[in-house]
């Protein structure tokens, strides 16, 4: 913008000419940066492209040596097989049920916990806050054996509830809510208190609606995380019709021998909802990632 304005203006002075030269150098720098980012984008996007293109190749073409960037014989056989011969319908529904359940429960619990720690005065508040911060320091996979033992004692192994359970540990979500609720000016709270609002009304009619952006961002990122989760659902479920779609991929592999085309077809179908969510809510997702990165960093 400024560059074109400068070009349009007559270059009456030396200073103007020097500025223009400066801009040109800057443009060169910009061009270089663009090229680098473009290169990086290709590096990241290529595996995706490779995976997608592979699903449209017949198996013999896939295992043939050499790099074919486009299928010789374009086929949708892999998808047809996966959709008709596997329990992908179950896996999809299971993934949907568990991910939605995780999202809804995590959001409600985290909002409640964040509100309590941010706004209420009760004995042990500081203790709970430290507990949440501490639990956030512990990597979840480190606890996976304990989770398994506890859930099997509760008789929840090989159930959808068992898949959901350990995913409800979401300290980051609580921390983010707490920080946002902390930053709501206290006048809002007091005005509502004078008007007779209780804590539930404060949370659901003031604090949550005033932070809708955070809630949608957190909900999306929680959903994507739950959908993509592999390790825990893989351990918690053994019967095929209780599996999530991420776990289901392993079944395709086992039941029909190694078939890269079919495996990748399931993977593509598994990734589809997340890709759609991302495309629709791109801005929110980035925001959510920044939010949790801000906490982690």
């Amino acid at each position: 913008m400024t560059a074109s304005a400068d070009l349009a203006a007559p270059l009456a002075t030396d200073a103007g000419a020097r500025r223009l030269a400066g801009l040109r150098r800057l443009d060169l720098l910009g061009l270089g940066l663009t090229l680098i980012t473009l290169l990086a984008a290709i590096v990241f996007a290529f595996p995706l492209y490779w995976g997608l293109i592979t699903t449209f190749k017949p198996e013999y073409e896939i295992i043939r040596p050499g790099v074919a960037l486009w299928p010789e014989h374009f086929t949708i056989e892999n998808y047809v097989h996966v959709l008709l011969q596997t329990k992908i319908g179950y896996w999809y529904v299971n993934s949907l049920i568990t991910s939605v359940a995780v999202t809804v429960i995590v959001i409600i619990m985290a909002a409640g916990a964040g509100y309590a720690i941010s706004q209420l005065n009760f004995p042990g508040r500081q203790f709970f806050w430290w507990m949440i911060l501490a639990s956030f320091m512990v990597p979840i996979p480190a606890l996976i054996v304990t989770h398994f033992v506890v859930l099997s004692q509760l008789g929840l192994i090989n159930t959808l509830a068992g898949v959901v359970g350990p995913q409800l540990i979401a300290p980051v979500t609580v921390i983010i809510y707490k920080q946002f609720f902390d930053s709501v000016p206290k006048d809002f709270r007091e005005a509502a208190v004078v008007d007779g609002a209780n804590d539930f009304q404060l949370l659901f009619r003031i604090y949550l609606p005033m932070n809708w952006g955070v809630t949608t961002a957190l909900a999306i990122i929680t959903f994507i995380g739950a959908w993509n989760l592999f390790l825990w659902p893989f351990l918690a479920v053994s019967s095929e019709d209780k599996m999530n779609i991420t776990v289901g991929i392993t079944q395709v592999h086992d039941a029909f021998g190694v078939s890269y085309g079919r495996d990748l077809a399931v993977a593509m179908l598994a990734a589809l909802p997340v890709a759609l969510v991302y495309l629709v809510f791109q801005r929110r997702v980035t925001q959510a990632i920044m939010l949790s990165a801000g906490i982690k960093g």
Partner: peptide, 28 residues
């Protein structure tokens, strides 16, 4: 506060940004 039959106007107004004027006024 709610049982004291008082109403308070704050310096910052404390209007709920996500509600219309009508809902703000009718909140209590």
């Amino acid at each position: 506060p709610a049982q004291r039959r008082i109403a308070m106007v704050f310096q910052s107004y404390a209007l709920y940004p996500h509600m219309t004027v009508r809902d703000n006024i009718a909140f209590s």
